[in-house]
Design a protein around this nucleic acid. Structure first.
Lengths: 336, 336
DNA sequence: CAACATTTGGCAATCGCTTGCCATGTTTCG
DNA sequence: CGAAACATGGCAAGCGATTGCCAAATGTTG
C-alpha cells in the first residue's frame, strides 16, 4: 500500500556504478550487455529488491506481456481445461493472464476486446460468439487466436469435429441405430453448425437418417425441452450439442421414466466434469481441452514476438476421441 | 497490430482547442472542468476514437484499475461462483480482472502476488493456502481480501461455517446418528480446520461423537481412500471436506456395494455443479459463492478508493444453508 | 466601480523504463 | 603496426497520461 519509494533503474544504476540504460538492457536485452556486467547488475538489483515496473516497460516498449482470454461463461465446466491450459502456458512464459467472460453475448465480447485492447498483447477467444465479419475486422486491429472456432485467415485451435462426429455416427451405426437426432446449440454457435454438418455427412455415409432439432440453450436447463423434442420425434439415438445439455436430457428422460440406453441412446460432446458420474454415465466425445488452451497461447506468443509470416496464420486441429460409457446401447427392437 | 499512430490527449486537445490537461481532467476529474467544455472534449474524443491509455494512466497515477484473483485450482467447480461473482463486480466497476491459479501451493501463491504486485491495485485470495504470518506480511505491502479464509486484522469474506456445520450435525442427529466422521481436507487448509472445529463442537452439543480422519486430497480421486477409511471406522455418517471428495466417496462406496444412505450417510460442502446429479444426489452445505466473490471485490474497491479507516478491516460472513438430497438417511439399526 | 473570492484552463515536471545514436575501448587482420 | 570491425556503455529523448501551481476569467460584494 504505502510506497516509501520504489526502487527504480536509477537506484540500481547508481548502486552498480553503471548507466540506467545498462540496467534496463541487463533485464530486457541481455545480448547487448557484457555478461559480467550483467551478472553484477542483476546481483545489485536482487539485493535492492528491484523489479522492473511492468507498466513503465509496457508504456515505452509497447509490449505488455499480458494476454486476455475471453470465455462465454465460466459456469460451463467445458472451459476449465482450456482456461487452465492457457493460464499455465501464459504463466510459464511470464505472461500475465487476464480472464473475461462474455455472457454468451457477441456485443459483450466485442466490448471486452475494445476495453482491454491497450492493456494486452493479444486475445484468446474461446468459442467466440461474434460473426465472422466482426471477428475478421477486429483481427485487423488486434492479435487474435480462436479456440473452437474458425474464421478464414485467422489462427485457430479446434478439436477435430469432423472425425469426432464420424466416430459418434459409427458408434451408433454399429449399435444398429438407423437414424439420429442432433439437438442443436445456439445458432450463433459455430460449433453447432460444424457438428451438425459433420454428423449429417457421417450419417449419410452410413446410410442413416439425421435430423436436427433446436436450437436449445446449451445448459442443463435446456435439457427438458430437448428431451421432449427428441421423444416426439421418435428418435432412438440423440446427440446433444454438449454434455451440459446431454445431462439435462438424461435427467428429463429419467423423470419421464424413459430408459437410457434401452429405449434411447444419448451422446454428448466435451466429456466435462460430471459426465462420468451422472446416470447413466455419459458417452461423449472428448478432446484435449487443456492442450487447446496451451496451443492457443503458444500461437499468440510466437505470432507476437517472432512476427511470423502473416501469410500463414496457424491452424491447429486437435484429435478427439469417443468415450463410450453407459448412455448408449443397441437400438431398441423396431418390431416392438 | 500495426499502430499507425494512437490518438493521444494531445490530438484531442488540439482538435478541441483546449490544453491536454483539460482533456485529461475531462476524463478523470470531471468536477475540475466546465460542464460544457467537458461535453465538447468528450465529443471530440469520441469522434477521434480516443481512449485513454490505461498504462500511461496507471504509470502516472499509481492506480491500475486492475485487480487479481488467485484461486488454488480451477478444476474445482466450487470456485466458479466466486470467480464469476468477482469478475462481474470488477467488470461492472470498469476494473480489469486478472485470474491466476496457485496450484494449491503457498509458494506459487506468494510468487504470483509478487509478480503481479505492480500491475494491480489489489488481490482477492480465494481459499488461500498461505500461513497466517506470510499472509499478514504480504498484507502490509499489498491490498488483500480473503475469501473463505480468515487472518487476524485482514478483510475477508467467509461462508458461515459454524452455523452451517451445526446444520449438518443437527440434520444427522435428527436422523438418529450417534456419531459422525469428518473426512478432512489438506491440513494447510484453513477451512478444513474451521469445519472440523465447528463439526466437533456441534456434535458435542448434541451428545454425538465426532472423529476426524485424513487428510485426503480434496478431489474426486481422494474419495477412494476416504471411503475406505470411513468404512473401517464403522461410521454411520461421514462429512466430507468438500463435494469433490464426497462424490469420490459415493463412487467408491457404490463400487464396494455399500448402500447410501441405508448403510452410511454422506454429506459434503459447497453444493458444486454435479452435486445434484450424482447418485445418490448429495446432501451438502450450500453457500452464496457468487455473492462471496462480489463482496470481496466490493471491499477491495472501497478500501482502495475511500481509504477506509484502517482500524476496521471489513469482515463479511455469508449465510449458508443445508441442501438435503438423497445421500443422507436414518442411521442404520444398530441392532443388526 | 474597485477589491476580493472562486472557477477554469494551461504550463511543465513527472511516473519508470526503453532505445536510437554516439563515443569509447578491444579485437582482428592485412 | 595502423585501420577496420566489433562490442559495450552512456546520453537524452521519448511513451501517454496526471497533477501541482499559477494566471486569467468570471462572479460577488460593499
Amino acid at each position: 500500500m504505502s510506497s516509501p519509494k520504489r526502487t527504480t533503474v536509477y537506484d540500481v544504476a547508481r548502486e552498480a556504478g553503471v548507466a540506467a540504460s545498462t540496467v534496463s538492457r541487463a533485464f530486457s536485452n541481455p545480448r547487448r550487455v557484457n555478461a559480467t556486467t550483467r551478472r553484477h547488475v542483476l546481483a545489485v538489483a536482487e539485493r535492492l529488491g528491484y523489479h522492473p515496473s511492468p507498466l513503465a516497460t509496457a508504456l515505452q516498449s509497447g509490449r505488455t506481456a499480458t494476454l486476455a482470454m475471453l470465455v462465454p461463461d465460466i459456469a460451463n465446466p467445458h472451459f476449465f481445461g482450456t482456461i487452465r491450459g492457457a493460464e499455465r502456458r501464459a504463466t510459464a512464459a511470464d505472461i500475465t493472464f487476464i480472464l473475461g467472460f462474455t455472457e454468451e453475448s457477441a456485443d459483450t465480447e466485442r466490448d471486452q476486446i475494445e476495453r482491454l485492447a491497450r492493456s494486452v498483447d493479444g486475445f484468446v477467444l474461446a468459442s467466440s460468439r461474434m460473426p465472422d465479419s466482426t471477428t475478421a475486422d477486429l483481427a485487423r486491429e488486434h492479435n487474435l487466436v480462436l479456440v473452437n472456432r474458425e474464421v478464414d485467415g485467422l489462427p485457430s485451435v479446434v478439436v477435430d469435429n469432423a472425425s469426432g462426429s464420424a466416430q459418434i455416427v459409427d458408434h451408433l451405426a454399429s449399435l444398429g441405430h438407423r437414424s439420429l437426432v442432433y439437438l442443436s446449440g445456439p445458432h450463433q454457435s459455430w460449433l453447432a453448425g460444424e457438428r451438425w454438418r459433420a454428423l449429417s455427412a457421417g450419417a449419410g455415409r452410413r446410410g442413416m437418417g439425421a435430423t436436427r432439432l433446436g436450437p436449445f440453450p446449451p445448459q442443463v436447463a435446456g435439457g427438458g425441452a430437448a428431451a421432449d423434442a427428441a421423444l416426439v420425434s421418435g428418435a432412438t439415438a440423440v446427440v446433444a450439442h454438449n454434455d451440459l445439455l446431454a445431462i439435462g436430457i438424461l435427467r428429463r428422460l429419467a423423470e419421464r421414466g424413459v430408459q437410457v440406453p434401452e429405449q434411447i441412446s444419448v451422446v454428448g460432446y466435451d466429456d466435462i466434469f460430471g459426465a462420468d458420474f451422472c446416470v447413466p454415465a455419459l458417452t461423449t466425445l472428448a478432446g484435449p481441452q487443456e492442450e487447446a488452451g496451451r496451443s492457443a497461447v503458444e500461437i499468440l506468443l510466437t505470432t507476437g514476438s517472432a512476427r511470423a509470416d502473416p501469410e500463414s496464420p496457424r491452424r491447429v486441429v486437435l484429435p478427439s476421441h469417443l468415450v463410450i460409457r453407459d448412455s448408449t446401447g443397441p437400438a431398441p427392437d423396431p418390431g416392438r
